[in-house]
Design a protein around this nucleic acid. Structure first.
Length: 431
RNA sequence: UCCACAGUAGCUCAAUGGUAGAGCAUCCGGCUGUUAACCGGAGGGUUGCAGGUUCGAGUCCCGCCUGUGGAGCCA
């Protein structure tokens, strides 16, 4: 016998079925009880009328507490009075466990309390909606690259050295070999992959020990990083805009009920179609100056600056050709203007900030070694990476997309802490 | 790390320097269509910790702890 889930109940109207799940909420009125049951796929209002069940079953419903596990059996009926339009008329009920007093009530709670109870908070409908959208985004990411012949290439999490700034590494003892570090990015390994397999993507968790305490930061977050041999900056930007279009279209196609539950205005999401608007860093600085922001050419943009830039567009905007000195060592300098690199960031609209950062990579051996020295990085740790420029180096490019910021943007959340099941932040390691 | 704000019942919050309270949750009772149901009743407190001022401190002062929002840094 196949198991029936709440999300499929509209196909079982008129049948007697059994649903196993948890009590989400209960309302009682003398001789009639309304049990709202959840099973992970949705919520179902179950109506228990005293005359229709045995005394034992009716008494059992009195003992049910919020989140008690149970199985309900009854007739599935269409009823406009029920949330979801379908309800169950209970004929039988069995209790699996009576839950202890559940800490999360239907009333409001503070952020810290909810984060302390994250393992239970995940059961609420808002968190359901977010995690389903996250799932859809991850699914769309893999679908996009898989359909284009990219090979998933996992990068290591223990690494011998930094690829971004050195001050933001989590370190750990690695037997008698000294320190190992948790990866900040799989990109360098992705480059090795691109030279082996042509087009690859790295997808996994990354770690930054930045003491950032903002709505956009986690210490552990997921990143997907495509890397393509023979791609230049233009190819890279085109890949990024096709990629974003695909992700957003997939969520709009499959997760509208969740976006509605999150009260997400999808107007801007529907605009996410390639090609996206593109401006150079220099144009972005001029734009900021015209808006009265005090910036100079060569400054990196802060979160507020990114918001001002993105407010000029009704869809994500690509900013390219950043100053060399504010970007990573592996980015290729523009031959026409070595003060800039062939970098590009994608800024999400509505103030959600940078969701993609990428570049064409430095493929020249001498230039790369020089950049490593300029950044005072330990060259020995990068010998394998430099090797890629010794043996058949070619132009190549890639980018990284932060999954949590993308989820926050698409869901319209005001903080990334709700975009991942168990967020890791500067002051939170549990649950 | 820096700046600002906060910490009172299980939760969300009140309380002019003068008897610590409400709603929800819990428990008891009532109600045959509820939608965060409603109505009546009950229990529930070392006011974050440690000092100080005062006749008297949840309230004022000092230090610490924890958290929230933001900055810098970044995806």
């Amino acid at each position: 016998m196949s198991r029936i889930y709440i999300e499929d109940l509209h196909r079982h109207v008129g049948e007697e079925v059994t649903i196993r799940g948890w009590l989400y909420h209960k309302r009682s009125s003398g001789k009639i009880r309304f049990l709202v049951v959840r099973d992970g796929t949705g919520l179902l209002q179950c109506v228990m009328v005293k005359a229709n069940v045995t005394e034992e079953v009716f008494a059992l419903s009195d003992a049910l507490t919020q989140e008690s596990s149970l199985a309900v059996t009854g007739m599935v009926k269409k009823d406009d009075r029920a949330p979801g339009g379908v309800e169950m008329e209970i004929t039988s009920l069995s209790v699996i466990q009576i839950a202890k007093e559940y800490p999360i009530s239907p009333k409001e709670h503070g952020v810290d309390f909810l984060m302390d109870h994250r393992h239970l908070w995940l059961r609420s409908s808002r968190q359901h909606a977010i995690l389903r959208v996250r799932h859809q985004i991850i699914s769309a990411i893999r679908e996009f690259f898989d359909n284009r012949g990219f090979i998933l290439m996992d990068a290591p999490i223990f690494t011998p050295a930094a690829c971004e700034g050195t001050s933001t590494l989590f370190e750990t003892e690695y037997f008698d070999m000294g320190k190992a570090y948790l990866t900040q990015s799989g990109q360098l390994y992705g480059e090795a992959g691109a030279f082996a397999l042509g087009k690859t993507y790295v997808f996994g968790p990354t770690f930054r020990a930045e003491k950032s305490k903002t709505r956009r930061h986690l210490t552990e977050f997921w990143m997907v990083e495509p890397e393509v041999a023979f791609n230049d900056l233009k190819d890279n930007m085109e890949l990024a805009e096709d990629f974003l279009e695909h992700i957003v279209a997939s969520v709009l196609k499959h997760r509208m009920p969740e976006l509605k539950a999150l009260e997400r205005n999808t107007k801007f999401l529907e605009n996410v179609k390639a090609p996206l608007p593109k401006i150079s860093y220099t144009e972005a600085v001029d734009l900021l100056k015209a808006k009265g922001v005090n910036v100079a050419w060569g400054d990196d943009f802060g979160g507020a600056d990114e918001t001002v830039i993105s407010e000029n567009f009704d869809r994500p905007v690509i900013v390219h050709h950043y100053p060399t000195k504010i970007k990573a060592f592996y980015m290729k300098r523009d031959a026409e203007n070595p003060e800039t690199v062939l970098a590009m960031d994608v800024l999400a609209p509505e103030g959600y900030g940078e969701i993609i950062g990428g570049s064409q990579r430095e493929d020249d051996l001498d230039a790369l070694v020089q950049r490593i020295q300029e950044h005072q990085l330990p060259q020995s740790a990068f010998e394998w990476y430099i090797d890629l420029r010794r043996y058949g180096s070619v132009p190549h490019a890639g980018f990284g997309l932060g999954v949590e910021r993308t989820v926050a943007w698409i869901c319209g959340l005001d903080h990334v802490r709700e975009t991942i099941p168990f967020p890791r932040m500067i002051y939170r390691l549990t649950p």
